[in-house]
Design a protein around this nucleic acid. Structure first.
Lengths: 213, 213, 213, 213
DNA sequence: GTGTAATCGAGACGGTACGTCGAGTCTTGTG
DNA sequence: CACAAGACTCGACGTACCGTCTCGATTACAC
C-alpha cells in the first residue's frame, strides 16, 4: 500500500479536473464519524443518517462515494489502521517473527470492538459476491501477504519443510485468531497467541510418537 | 442432543395445557420455509413476511415462538442438522478420529451455503450479548464438547502431552475450518482438512529443528 | 352524497371482514392534522412527515390509504365540509336562490385560506389525468349539480329562456367566483357576489340597446 | 409591453458594465428549454437540473438570473407570447371587440397545455405573497388593462351603463374562460366564447321579465 | 497588451422530503 | 388458547431535487 489513503478510484491523472473538487474535509469527517459510531455500536445498528449527522454531512455525499454502509466500513477500518501494514523484520526465527506479527495485531484488534464490525463485513461478503471480492482484496489478502514472507524465510533458513503449504499454515494461525475474535467464546489474549504459535509450530503430538510415525 | 427438537422452552410437564395446542404443521412449515429461504438468500435479505408467506402462516405465529429472525435461523440450522451430532467412536488414533469428525462436517457445511447464515449469526452475536449466549450454547459449545473427548482419549493413549491445552487445540482446528468457511478465500476441501490435521498434529517445524531445540 | 364520509373504497359489504380493522382513530387524526396544516401553510409546503407527526400516526399508515398528498387534501376538504352540500330551497326567484347558494359558499371559502389548497389541487389535476378525474368527480361536479336545479326551476318559472345553456351559466358564475378566490387580485366580498349575480342575470347591455338589437 | 424581453432588472443605463457580459445564447437556450419541458410535463414535474441539462447550461447560470423555477416559468410564458399583447381596435361594438380579444387568446391558450403551467403559478402565488405580486403584475393586470378600454369605449358609445363595474365585468368574462382552462371540465371552444359573451352582455333573464322588473 | 471583473460549465455540497420496506406489535374474527 | 389476516408504529432506507458553493476557463472593457 504505497498510497494508503487511496480509498476511492481516482480518475486518470492526466484528465482535466472540472467542477468543484471533492471536499477532503467531508471525506475525513465521514470516516471519523463512521469509525466512532461503528466501533461503538456495530455495523447494523448504526444508520447512515446517524453517520451523516455526526459528520455534519449530507447523506447524499456519503452515497456519492460509498455505495453501501459496508463499503464505508471497509474504508473506515483502513482509515483507522493507516500505517499498520508494516513488514516484519528478519528476527532469526519463525517463532519470534510470528509473535512479532500477531502480538500487535491482537493488541490492536482487542483495543476496540473490531470483531463486531469485521463479523458484519464477513456476513455481507457471504451474500454479495462483489463485496466479497473487495473485502478479500482489502482486508484478507493484505494480511496474508504480510505474513507469507515469514514462512518463505523460515523455509530458506531450513526451519520448516520446503514443501510446507503456506496457505494451510496461514489458515491455521489466522483461523484460530479470527475464531476467538469472532466467536468470542474465549479471550484473545497474549497467552493464547503464544500457546497457538507453539502448538502450530511444534504440533501437539508427543516427540516419541512422531519419531515412531 | 437427546431431545434435538426441543427448540423452545416447554412449560413444566405437570402443568395443565389449556386452549388450542400449538400447531405442529405450522412449526414445521416455518422451519422448512426458513431453511429454504435463508439458505437461498442469506439471513439479512430474507424478511419475516417472506418466510410467513411461504410457510402459509401468520407472521404473529412466528413471533409467538421465536423472538427474532436470528433465533429462528438458529433453529432452522438445528432442524436441518437433526442427527448430525453423533459422537465419534474410538478409532485408535487421534488423527483418524479428527478426520472422522471433520470430514462429514465439511461435507455437510459445504453442501449448501451455510456459511452465509452462520456469518450473519456471528455478526448478530457480536452486538447482542443475549443472543451471543444462546449462539454459543447452541452452536459453538456442542461442537467443542463433541470434539473434546477425542483429545482426552489421545492423552490417555499417550499420543499427546497430558498438559495439552485442549481449548487451544480446538481453536486451531475449528478456527481454520471456520476461517475458510466464512472468509471464502480458499476452498474448504477434503485435502485441506487432511493437510490441516497433519500440520496441527505434527507441527510445521522440521524434525531436526525440534530435536535441536 | 348519501354517505359523506365514504372517502375510500369500501369492499363489498357482504365480504367477510378479516384481519385487524382499519383504525377510525387514525383516519380522523390524519384528516384533522391534514386540515390544520394544509390550511395553515398550503399543500406544497406541508410534508407528509409533518402530517404524520401531528396526527401521531405512522407515515406508512397515511400512504396505505391515500396514494398522494393531493388525494389526502381532497378528503381533508370533504372532512371539513361535511354537511355543506345542502340543496337550495325554492325561493321563488333565481336571483334569491343564487344568492342563497353563493353567499354561504363565499363565507365558508373566505373564512380560511382554501384557495391556496384548491389552487394546488388544480395544478396537480392539470398534470395527472387520474387525479383530474377524481378532482372533477369529488369537487367540481357536486358543486355544479347542486346549482343546476336552480336554473331548471327558473326555466320552469319562465324566468330565463328554455334554451339557456346551463353549463355556460354555471361557468359564468362559478368562474368569476373561483377567479377571485384563486387569483386574489380583488376581494371575494358579498358585494361582489351581488354585483356578479345581477350582472349575470340582467347582462351589462343597456335596455334600449337590447331592444334595438 | 414596449420592451417585451426586459424580463430581468437591468442596472441603470449609466452604470459602467464591467466584466464578462451576460450570455444571450444561454438566456435564450434556458427559456426555450424551459418552454419545451414545462409545457410538456408541467411545472412541478420538471426539475431545474433537467432544464439546465437540456439548455446545455450550468444550473448556477439559471439561478443567477431567476430566483425560482416559478419566476423562470413566468418569463417562459412571456418568451412564448411575445407580440401577443396587442390592443384591440375600435370595431364599433363591444361584442365584436370582446370576441376579437378572446378568440385569439383561446386559440393561443388551447394550442398547448398552458393551463398546466398557469395552474402551478397560481398555486405558488397563493402561498408566496412576493411571487403573488409579481404574478399579478406580469400576467393578471396586463390582461385586464388590455380589456378595460373596450368597456370604456362601450360606455362612451352608450352601449353599457356608465356606472358599470368594469372589474366585475372583467371577472365575469375572464373568470369563465380561466375556469374552463384550469378545471378542464368542459372544452374551451370558440362556441363557448360566443355563448359566454352573449350571455354576459345580454344576461340570461328573458326580455319580458326584465321589462316587468 | 495586460489586468480586472463578472460570466460560464461542471459538478460537489448541505438539506429536506420523498415513498418504500422490514421488524415487531396489536386487534379483529374463527377454530 | 392458537391461528390467519392484516393494520399498525417505528425507524431506516436510498433517491431526487433544491439552491449554494467552488473550481478552472472565458470574455469583455479599462487602462
Amino acid at each position: 500500500m504505497s498510497d494508503q489513503e487511496a480509498e476511492v478510484d481516482e480518475p486518470a491523472a492526466g484528465a482535466v479536473r472540472r467542477g468543484r473538487p471533492r471536499s477532503e474535509k467531508a471525506r475525513v469527517a465521514i470516516l471519523e464519524a463512521g469509525g466512532k459510531l461503528l466501533l461503538a455500536d456495530g455495523l447494523e445498528p448504526v444508520s447512515m443518517d446517524a453517520i451523516a449527522e455526526r459528520a455534519a454531512v449530507s447523506k447524499a455525499t456519503i452515497y456519492r462515494w460509498w455505495p453501501t454502509k459496508e463499503t464505508l466500513a471497509l474504508d473506515v477500518l483502513f482509515h483507522e489502521w493507516v500505517g499498520d501494514e508494516l513488514t516484519v523484520a528478519d528476527l532469526g526465527s519463525l517463532r519470534a517473527e510470528l509473535l512479532a506479527l500477531f502480538m500487535p495485531w491482537v493488541e490492536r484488534v482487542s483495543a476496540r470492538p473490531y470483531g463486531r464490525v469485521i463479523g458484519a463485513l464477513i456476513a455481507k461478503a457471504r451474500s454479495d459476491s462483489a463485496f466479497s471480492e473487495e473485502y478479500d482484496r482489502r482486508l484478507v489478502q493484505p494480511r496474508r501477504e504480510q505474513a507469507r514472507p515469514l514462512f518463505v524465510r523460515a523455509i530458506e533458513r531450513g526451519e520448516i519443510a520446503a514443501d510446507t503449504d503456506i496457505d494451510v499454515a496461514l489458515d491455521l494461525f489466522y483461523g484460530a485468531l479470527y475464531h476467538r475474535l469472532l466467536q468470542g467464546h474465549l479471550a484473545l489474549s497474549d497467552e493464547f497467541v503464544v500457546a497457538l504459535v507453539d502448538m502450530g509450530l511444534n504440533g501437539m503430538m508427543s516427540r516419541q510418537d512422531k519419531a515412531a510415525a
